[in-house]
């Protein structure tokens, strides 16, 4: 593989896959520890109706509209789950199930009923994205990385996901201690005077942000897999939060790189001629890593 082929066709999707995986895995650590892993599942389902409504309202697929619509849908779904749980006195798992299936169904129905033939918006795309199509056609080789005219035409998704990841890193650095304390011992955090409810909501909003940015590039299936698998595997490697987060980033990167390579080149090794879904393969690799950690991880049985 040479630079003339790799840089235009594979470099940007690979980078986007890595950034999206890390952006989801970081908040995922706290979701897994707080037993809220399935909030990630719920959010990634409700992103679809948010984007469809944003499209119907604004009449075009613009980044801002999509991000706003998806974020609004994520917040609405969290409010609905909380409302059903509190006022309907229904256990949170079932409240989640009611909310995200109904919203997803509404999204699919709206999509089927509205005329979206002119734009790239369909259920399959929402589920497994189009990572492979995020190519950088202006590049001619490694030298393009220092060529300003080519860099200008880099795909937008790359900047967007990089920006979101940066934001998540900054927030994590600022709120690390309160977040860690309230994750492990909410009662203790409350006695310290930390706003535990606001911290919980903030985490959900950051997760939604990561989900929306990643969804745009890679589809919802990677989003769920990256929220849960790398942090869950990391949890089986160590008892220390900082180390766990570091492991989860490593696992997310390995999943993204190996998944992308296997999807693009794996079929060739077995005599096939067509690439398979990169998003699906990244999720599969993250599952294999989790399986290994579950069989061999040093802390797989717990702290004792």
């Amino acid at each position: 593989m040479n630079g003339a082929e790799f840089v235009p066709l594979s470099l940007t999707p690979l980078l986007i896959g890595c950034l999206a995986a890390v952006a989801c895995a970081l908040p995922g650590n706290f979701l897994v520890l707080r037993r809220q892993a399935l909030i990630g599942d719920a959010i990634s389902h409700v992103v679809l109706p948010g984007i469809v409504v944003a499209f119907l309202v604004s009449g075009a697929i613009t980044t801002t509209a999509m991000l706003l619509g998806a974020a609004a849908a994520a917040i609405l779904s969290v409010a609905m789950i909380e409302g059903i749980r509190r006022y309907g006195r229904i256990e949170s798992g079932a409240a989640m199930g009611v909310t995200f299936t109904a919203m997803f169904a509404a999204g699919v129905l709206l999509l089927e009923l509205s005329d979206t033939s002119g734009v790239h918006l369909d259920v399959e795309h929402a589920l497994y994205g189009n990572l492979e199509s995020l190519v950088w056609l202006d590049a001619t080789g490694w030298s393009s990385l220092v060529d300003w005219t080519a860099l200008v035409n880099l795909t937008d998704e790359l900047f967007r996901i990089a920006l979101i990841l940066m934001l998540i890193l900054i927030l994590l650095a600022i709120f690390w201690r309160p977040l860690a304390i309230s994750t492990f011992d909410e009662g203790f955090a409350a006695t310290l005077g930390l706003p535990v409810a606001a911290i919980g909501l903030g985490l959900v909003i950051v997760s939604a942000l990561a989900a929306v940015a990643a969804f745009d590039a890679v589809g919802s299936i990677i989003v769920i897999a990256m929220f849960i698998c790398p942090p869950a595997a990391a949890r089986l490697m160590t008892n220390r939060l900082g180390v766990q987060v570091a492991w989860s980033v490593v696992f997310a990167l390995v999943s993204a790189v190996l998944g992308f390579v296997f999807a693009g080149y794996g079929p060739l090794w077995f005599g096939g001629s067509h690439a398979v879904s990169a998003a699906g393969m990244i999720a599969t690799v993250s599952g294999l890593i989790l399986a290994l950690a579950a069989l061999l991880g040093p802390t797989r049985r717990g702290a004792h």
């Binding site: 809220q36 942090p231 869950a232 990244i282």
Partner: peptide, 23 residues
């Protein structure tokens, strides 16, 4: 058999199986 809670197990299984299905 591991320290993972049921919600993490559910999320991991559904996303990995679904991802492999897409492949």
């Amino acid at each position: 058999r591991t320290r993972l809670t049921e919600d993490a197990a559910i999320g991991a299984v559904l996303s990995v199986f679904f991802g492999f299905g897409i492949v």
